[in-house]
Design a protein around this nucleic acid. Structure first.
Length: 543
RNA sequence: AGGGGCGUAGCUCAGUGGUAGAGCAGCGGCCUUUUAAGCCGAAGGUCGUGGGUUCGAUCCCCACCGCCCCUACCA
């Protein structure tokens, strides 16, 4: 949208204690520094250390929303309240402003004959964006707006740069992401999204803590990147002189902890994947991953039904949540095996849909792909393609992704994944071609992935070696022998799952880009500005 | 990575092949119950960057940069 997000940064020479940077708009920046000096000259501390308040602006507005003027007069309510100035109207010897705090704004009224010369002069030197504290009593104006009759005005800090425009607010998407603090100040909706996100994390913790789970933190820097198929970021430790990978999943460490007797364990933390960026992908994203000994994937599916219904209810007040044009019902999950999903969503015009039995037969998935591609070729739809020589399981996965995934708007479990694409999952006893694995889809996105954990070290080693042999950028390069050793010490039967917290937040806040639920999403760094020598940068200070 | 869109004042946006405009914010003045306060006045822009076409480019063409969307990879 914008060439570069303002402000333009002008570099100046750094002199002892002086602000080395200047920011656009320069005229306002300098104007406000001048006012700051005038405030100092009046004898006010320009960076005071605290303000004792009694209520936030939001609390006042809420608590006295209905209190009539007469009652406020009769029972005078003294308050001390602090916030950021978001509107300002000076009218000669009186003035109004709104100060914003805890997401809401309250009006304050100042009068020369109440405040006195010095404090009123201070009020005249205020700008939109400044932080102030006021002490006084509540009253209602002629137009019946709840306001603070200010008896004492305290300067708290200066905004040297202007706030976004007050009427339209901040709409520039790039600035909203790069300078999130402005977005949070200007857009209540954005503030709400991040408060809701915090609430989601809180409720998740409550849910797992209440079931005897222990929260842990495992390494984010891994000598071997494992636990998922993804390209890792590489970093380097100087003293040890070794390369490390930012983790792509905590899975293998958490299961070591289950070996160690922490039977119910979870972690909420970041994963890093060196892959594409989109409305559903940020290079670092937050996963809740949990493991439960002695349970299988069916137990987990049941747990998830409880979890998501409860979460939606607690966070939005209802188990039914609006997401764009849809109403997602988190109290009702569709359940389909992967093969059933392919059959169900197979396009009618593409000929007979492959049955689960057909997809189970050797060469069946491959044949279905060919049939699908013939149809795709005729209609111009995307063909299913793969590098190398995919096996039946991989073809099945590709079919599912192409045909079914986008239709999974309502919450759904897709289960029984091919073993070939599930290297850490336990096979189904009656069919070793399939594993006890499920994924949860909602809003057309994958939001969770869980399975009965493979705990047979011999089989795990075989699967790892197979992965490595297949190669590819996303396959591990090295056998994680330490993990196999841990399995050799005996991992009890267990089920585990990872939940994409960012995506869950998207669903519960009706956000359609992952960047709207991540405070500081990854953006390309702003182009460095040309260095400009600007001597005597500060008002009243010359070198 | 490929395709599409966008980039004009601090913010939100108009606009034109002939040297750029509004509202808000900022500056000076008036104003002691306003609330998108009002009124008067002055200011503010290498129209994303670099080339090209042209007598002349913010506008047309090309390249580059950044952001957004879609597709691909992925969760």
């Amino acid at each position: 949208m914008k060439a570069r997000a303002s402000p333009v940064i002008l570099r100046t020479t750094c002199r002892k204690g002086r602000l080395p940077l200047q920011f656009e708009p320069l005229d306002q920046f300098q104007q406000r520094q001048k006012k700051l000096e005038e405030i100092r000259a009046l004898g006010y501390a320009v960076y005071p250390h605290e303000f004792r308040w009694t209520e936030t602006p939001a609390a006042l507005v809420e608590a006295f929303a209905e209190t009539p003027a007469a009652e406020l007069e009769a029972h005078r309510r003294e308050v001390r309240v602090a916030g950021r100035i978001v509107s300002y109207r000076l009218m000669g010897k009186a003035g109004f402003a709104h100060i914003q705090g805890a997401g809401k704004r309250i009006q304050v009224y100042v009068k020369l004959d109440v405040l006195g010369e010095r404090a009123f002069k201070l009020f005249q030197l205020l700008d939109l964006g400044d932080n102030v504290g006021v002490a006084g009593h509540l009253f209602r104006t002629k137009t019946n707006e709840l306001s603070v009759w200010v008896e004492e005005l305290t300067f708290l800090s200066k905004a040297l740069l202007p706030l976004p425009e007050k009427w339209h607010g901040l709409t520039d998407i790039e600035i909203r992401y790069r300078q999130r603090y402005l977005d949070l100040l200007a857009n209540e909706k954005s503030r709400q999204v991040f408060l809701t996100r915090a609430r989601i994390v809180q409720e998740m913790r409550r849910f797992f803590d209440g079931r005897g789970y222990v929260e842990v933190e495992t390494p984010m820097m891994h000598p071997i990147a494992g636990g998922a198929a993804a390209r890792p970021f590489i970093t380097h430790h100087n003293t040890m002189d070794i390369d490390l990978y930012l983790r792509i999943a905590p899975e293998l460490y958490l299961k070591r902890l289950v070996v160690g007797g922490i039977d119910r364990v979870y972690e909420i933390n970041r994963n890093f994947r060196n892959e594409g960026i989109s409305t559903q992908h940020n290079p670092e994203f937050t996963m809740l991953e949990f493991y439960e000994a002695y349970s299988n994937y069916r137990d987990l599916m049941e747990l998830n039904e409880q979890l998501f219904a409860l979460l939606a209810e607690k966070v939005t007040g209802s188990t039914t949540v609006r997401y764009g044009e849809h109403q997602l019902d988190f109290a009702k999950f569709q359940k389909l095996t992967m093969r059933e999903a392919i059959e169900k969503y197979w396009p009618a015009e593409a000929g007979a849909a492959p049955t689960p039995a057909e997809l189970a037969a050797p060469g069946g998935p491959r044949a279905a792909v060919e049939r699908y591609n013939q149809w795709a070729g005729r209609t111009g739809a995307a063909r299913i393609t793969a590098k190398g020589q995919p096996c039946d399981g991989e073809w099945t996965g590709l079919l599912f992704e192409e045909i079914a995934e986008k239709h999974l708007i309502q919450p759904a479990f897709i289960y029984d994944f091919p073993t070939e694409i599930s290297p850490l999952s336990k096979q189904k006893p009656e069919d070793p071609a399939l594993t006890e694995r499920f994924e949860i889809f909602a809003g057309g996105m994958e939001i969770a992935n869980g399975f009965s954990e493979l705990n047979d070290p011999a089989e795990q080693e075989r699967r790892f070696l197979e992965q490595i042999a297949q190669g590819g950028e996303e396959a591990p390069k090295q056998l994680d022998a330490d993990y196999i050793r841990a399995l050799c010490h005996g991992l009890p039967p267990a089920a585990g799952e990872g939940i994409g917290m960012d995506r869950v937040t998207m669903l519960l806040t009706d956000s359609h880009s992952i960047r709207d639920v991540i405070l500081f999403p990854l953006l390309r760094p702003e182009a460095p500005e040309a260095k400009t020598e600007t001597p005597g940068a500060f008002a009243g200070e010359k070198d």
